[in-house]
Nucleic acid binder design. Structure first.
Lengths: 124, 124
DNA sequence: CGTATGAGTTAATTATAGCTAACCATATCT
DNA sequence: AGATATGGTTAGCTATAATTAACTCATACG
């Protein structure tokens, strides 16, 4: 089963939230994404059933190996793309929003090519 | 009503087909996009009702002012993005597919920034 | 003890956007 | 005239992914 764009978004959000908070619950994801609780609840059920996340008895969410791989891939894309758009003069908010949509539709090949190109421009 | 991604795709396809053929029918769009006839039929009905295209009595399709503006914007994005990805070393087929998805999710601001940047790299 | 709050869930609805099945109209071929 | 092919349409189905309404459950307040 091919992973869906929405699933990628949820996994990335879990990663981001677990970087700044220590524990992540469905409600935190709902707040972060401005989604209604049931939307997240259903999505988490799916991610759980497909082995992308685990939930302990207190309903705290952790990424599995498989889920983390996707989350980190998305996060890397997001970071690189938004930094690059900002570097090109795009407003930070707009750059972030755009990166957030582009990251899900890029092939691995194109991303690698962009990455190589960008590293020749931004020094960090 | 905000124009949908699928609508942008149809309008761009109509523009492309009308560049190479002289007349465009629903069936041509279906063949180009590898969609079933009814999918296109319904989509054309929508585009017609919202003033993006017109169909004469022989069912040949033309873009309205409004429809053409969107089609040309998409076409420009598509062209620039795919040329650029190819320039960065991405396989032509992959570049085209990626451009096709990115073109619909980019803000005007980001596209303009990318365009400016690309024009400093590719000379054509 | 009872009620309010917070978190999670289920069920039903909505929108987008594709599909197949079935049908109609026109034109062409024998 | 009858069969076939082409193009278009309608109706109904499917999948994804969000929503609201209504429910459960546990904890905390007073």
């Amino acid at each position: 089963m091919k992973i869906q764009e929405s699933a990628e978004m949820y996994l990335e959000t879990i990663l981001i939230l677990s970087k700044k908070n220590h524990q992540v619950r469905s409600i935190d994801i709902a707040n972060e994404l401005n989604y209604a609780k049931p939307s997240v609840s259903v999505a988490m059920k799916n991610l759980r059933e497909n082995g992308y996340i685990e939930m302990d008895s207190d309903l705290y969410i952790t990424l599995t190996e498989k889920g983390r791989a996707i989350a980190e891939e998305m996060y890397e894309r997001h970071t690189l793309l938004s930094e690059w758009l900002i570097f090109l003069g795009v407003d930070k908010k707009v750059a972030t929003e755009d990166a957030c949509r582009i990251e899900h539709v890029l092939s691995a090949e194109s991303f690698e090519a962009i990455k190589k190109h960008v590293h020749g421009h931004i020094s960090n």
